[in-house]
Design a binder for these strands. Structure first.
Length: 878
RNA sequence: GCCCGGGUGGCGAAAUGGUAAACGCGGGCGACUUAAAAUCGCCUGGCUUCGGCCGUGCAGGUUCGAGUCCUGCCCCGGGCACCA
């Protein structure tokens, strides 16, 4: 039996864990490297074959860095609060703690069998009392610094989930999870003042080694824009309307004002004749959620209030309207409308026949539409003739002099709605006193733990699960003995993931969230790897908390994650057809349709033949049949060809491949090598079951370098001592050089291809020498650690190959005596020449020109120019 | 609509402005075998009058030389979407 992963893998996994081979230790003598995976939410589904791509990549890097002499922190844990466990509890009555524990055990089992070199002694679970305590402690710090406050805010209430959702969790007016409708309601909620950090969250992005598109997404989410606030006096009153504009230079072109329907001045501005129309409009707008309103980019609607304001630059009367294209939550909730130079204002003005006054000449025609390009000011008194940028500066100075406005900055980012009406989350460590004030639970009373509950069903009437436990809600203030009420809300799932990377530095600490020594040594995270779906939310929230802890003196670096990488998604092949059993009635035997007989229009699919509505169905990937051309067929019907679709793995599409089955068949090492070899870390690709055997064969060949077959048995080869022949030394050196370079660039895919070349060629002419064998195993250990460890121990080593020293090589071996150059004539490759490595350009040129093939193409013409690229090629231009 | 990515053999993919397709899958041929599997070796972009010619989504440009840089367009994936 040549290479049998099942015989060796669990043995090494157990040994690594029992001996704590990969413990992370603070070692002042060594440089540190903190490589972190985004910790998973342990869902009931378990891992599919795509999840470990990031984990396997970080593991290869962690192992590489250890071999390079770094003290490596490579931990794993569980982001275990969250909605699914609670929803499961509602359905089955199983306590979320039970479900969570079960799922964690399954995840841990799956990760362990991949041979990942985590320091499992540092495992954290965000639902553990000892973790919750410090999450609540950080909340206390936010509260003490005035960054956590309660406010009556219009929230996104989702009746189906029975909870409020953050703006970020609402997509197109529906909940991100489950796509249930969401409505706007005012409720008292905990808010975190993330807006106070907006500027720093932007500025500090500069120093981070993150993918540019992720930085950009954060920038756009924060949405900084520079402009001015301008006060428009209200006609017939002492009041004024303050507007925010990014184009103060167009102030002379402001021909009307628009208030958001929720603006506090709406009632005051409205005249009697207009009141009924205004009230109706305001009421209509209130019924729509903000997302619905902003998503609707159709025709502009609005109502005139009957009131007027005065344009401060020219004292002209401008009518005041309300319209829902103005958002109450951005800027001042009011705008000055400049229809000539803003398309939305132009659409509105055109519809309601409001004058359009051009105040910027930029070559455009304002009768056709708004002209938004910069240009030169016109019809603008003292601004006339100034280019847009100068006009802005000038008018801002004027506004400030006159006390009529000022330059200012606005952000799209809002404060973070931080409470949820759920059970399975961290309780707020606060007490509401009878006088209406709120104070923190004293530190020595933390953690505030969840009360036991046996019914998790949301009541649907804005009551939270916790309010059903009066004996928990009702308590006393330990300082005064006065009655107090606990908060009925819990924190969102983000709370635990906002600081887990700090807990990993010192996870067993009972007296602090982490010690200053551990934080000093390990932070920041040098490499953070996880899904691009966290580009804004998790990464923005975690940066915010980290900055608060920085300001409070608990951490020494401004940013938590130095380098960020997003693994590409591994896709699965799914197989689709359609049927007309729209109600999923099991009693019906539906008509089946292949995709080719179905017409798709938007969300609707109809049978091409009769126009009946049909519904997509998927055949599980193991149940398809292939005809002789390789076309997938329905399991029972030869006439139904299945459409092959490459998409995200999910249970409902029947295209999930579990790592368990891959490991059982090919072993963890082959699964790891294939995952890495498929392509670059950040690129996604479909998982092809046909690809793994190739990687398995590579491991088998590696194994055969060390073992020889004698009839039925096999025995370890005796490896000659030393470095071997010149060719072997050169190949070994080139492999080390190449693999090192690839690992520094985080390209394990090409590193593995170099090891494949090594295995193919190293023992071609002479037996594998000892030195080459050891260098190879140390490198191989990054990708196929079990096999490397096994062979390493067979060579007589007692320590782990994962703790050896990265191999070195002699640079001189990479320089050969002669080199092969390509010769081009007019840029086309015509010949190949062999020249001494140290030949100078003239000598190379002479050899090239003398070449027969070159002569034929030069056709006796005199070269006009000869370019010699040392070590590469010669190009002769005639 | 706007902003990011990406488009290279039958497939996954390589390639500091310098010989396009390394490595792997699949396919073909051969060796070993009674045979098959496994293994090993060789071949594998298209066309060709066997001189070559054409080939990195399309059309141009810069350059001695472009997959790589620039301009315009097409397609696919992702993000944002009335933010004044």
């Amino acid at each position: 039996m040549p290479y049998d992963p099942t015989a060796i893998e669990t043995r090494w996994q157990d040994k690594w864990i029992s001996e704590r081979t990969f413990r992370a230790e603070i070692d002042p003598e060594k440089p540190k490297y903190y490589v972190l995976d985004m910790f998973p939410y342990p869902s009931g589904e378990g891992l599919h074959v795509g999840h470990p791509k990031g984990y396997i990549s970080t593991d290869a890097i962690a192992r590489y860095k250890r071999l390079r002499g770094f003290s490596v922190l490579h931990p794993m844990g569980w982001d275990a609060f969250g909605l699914p466990a609670e929803q499961y509890a509602v359905k089955t009555g199983t306590h979320p703690r039970i479900t969570t524990e079960r799922n964690i055990n399954n995840y841990r089992r799956q990760l362990k069998q991949l041979g990942l070199s985590y320091d499992w002694h540092r495992e954290v679970d965000t639902t553990e009392p000892d973790y919750v305590k410090w999450t609540q402690w950080i909340f206390s710090k936010l509260f003490e610094r005035g960054l956590a406050y309660e406010a009556e805010v219009p929230v996104n209430w989702c009746p189906a989930l029975g909870t409020v959702l953050a703006n970020e969790e609402v997509i197109d007016g529906k909940s991100e999870r489950g796509s249930h409708p969401v409505v706007r309601m005012p409720m008292k909620q905990w808010m975190l003042r993330i807006t106070e950090y907006a500027e720093r969250l932007i500025d500090d992005l500069d120093d981070l080694d993150w993918p540019e598109h992720i930085k950009r997404m954060q920038l756009e989410w924060i949405g900084r824009s520079e402009g001015a606030r301008v006060a428009f006096p209200i006609e017939g009153s002492d009041g004024e309307i303050e507007v925010f504009t990014t184009r103060p230079d167009t102030l002379f072109g402001a021909t009307y004002i628009v208030l958001a329907p929720e603006h506090p001045l709406v009632a005051e501005m409205t005249t009697e004749p207009q009141r009924a129309a205004v009230d109706a409009y305001v009421e209509g707008a209130a019924r729509k959620s903000e997302r619905v309103r902003t998503a609707d980019t159709g025709e502009k609607t609005g109502v005139f209030t009957g009131g007027f304001a005065i344009n401060p630059v020219n004292d002209e009367r401008v009518p005041v309207w309300i319209a829902d294209y103005v958002l109450s939550t951005y800027g001042t909730g009011a705008i000055m409308a400049v229809p000539a130079h803003d398309q939305r204002d132009w659409d509105f003005a055109t519809r309601f026949e409001i004058p359009i006054v051009q105040v910027v000449d930029n070559g455009g025609d304002v009768s056709e539409g708004a002209t938004t390009q910069p240009g030169v000011a016109m019809n603008s008194a003292f601004l006339d003739g100034l280019p847009t940028a100068e006009a802005k500066t000038r008018i801002n100075a004027w506004l400030e002099e006159q006390g009529k406005g000022e330059a200012t900055v606005s952000y799209k980012l809002r404060d973070w709605l931080f409470s949820r009406q759920r059970y399975w989350g961290e309780p707020f460590p606060v007490l509401h006193l009878e006088d209406g004030t709120t104070k923190l639970v004293p530190h020595d009373e933390l953690p505030v733990l969840l009360p036991e509950l046996d019914d998790w069903t949301p009541s649907g009437d804005f009551e939270t699960p916790l309010s059903r436990v009066p004996e928990w809600i009702q308590t006393t203030d330990p300082a005064t003995g006065a009655p107090a009420r606990r908060d009925r809300n819990t924190m969102p799932q983000w709370a635990g993931s906002c600081w887990y990377f700090l807990r990993f530095c010192d996870p067993l600490n009972h007296d602090a969230a982490f010690s200053p020594e551990a934080e000093q040594y390990w932070m920041p995270v040098d490499l953070y790897v996880g899904g691009a779906e966290h580009a804004v939310l998790h990464l923005l929230y975690a940066r915010f908390w980290h900055k608060v802890l920085y300001d409070a003196g608990f951490v020494h670096c401004k940013e938590p994650f130095q380098k960020l990488l997003n693994p590409g998604m591994i896709l699965g092949y799914s197989y689709r057809y359609y049927d007309d059993n729209l109600e999923d009635d099991p009693a019906v035997s539906p008509n089946l349709y292949p995709s080719s007989a179905v017409r798709i229009e938007g969300e609707r699919a109809t049978a091409a033949a009769n126009g009946d509505e049909v519904k997509a169905r998927w055949v599980h990937h193991t149940e398809i049949r292939l005809d002789e051309d390789g076309t997938a067929l329905h399991p029972d019907r030869d006439d139904i060809m299945l459409e092959e679709v490459t998409e995200k793995m999910s249970k409902s599409r029947g295209n999930v491949i579990s790592p368990d089955e891959m490991i059982e068949e090919f072993g963890a090492d082959a699964m790891r090598v294939y995952t890495l070899f498929m392509g670059p870390l950040d690129k996604g690709a479909p998982w092809s079951t046909e690809g793994i055997p190739g990687c398995f064969r590579f491991l088998q060949r590696s194994h055969r370098l060390f073992y020889e077959q004698n009839g039925e048995t096999e025995s370890l080869r005796t490896l000659p001592a030393g470095a071997g022949t010149d060719d072997q030394q050169r190949l070994t050196a080139a492999t080390i050089a190449g693999v090192t370079e690839d690992m520094e660039a985080i390209q394990p895919n090409t590193a593995i291809s170099k090891l494949m070349v090594f295995v193919r060629d190293i023992a071609k002419d002479s037996p594998l020498p000892q030195d080459a064998a050891e260098a190879f195993l140390i490198m191989l250990g990054c990708y196929a650690p079990h096999l490397a460890e096994e062979l390493w121990s067979q060579l007589g080593h007692t320590g782990s190959v994962g703790l050896a020293a990265w191999p070195t090589y002699d640079e001189a071996l990479l320089v050969s005596e002669t080199i092969t150059l390509a010769v081009q004539v007019n840029g086309k490759r015509r010949a190949e020449i062999e020249v001494p490595a140290d030949a100078d350009n003239d000598a190379v040129q002479a050899i090239a020109l003398a070449d027969e093939g070159v002569q034929r193409h030069v056709e006796g013409k005199a070269p006009r120019k000869v370019i010699v690229v040392p070590g590469r090629l010669v190009n002769i231009v005639v």
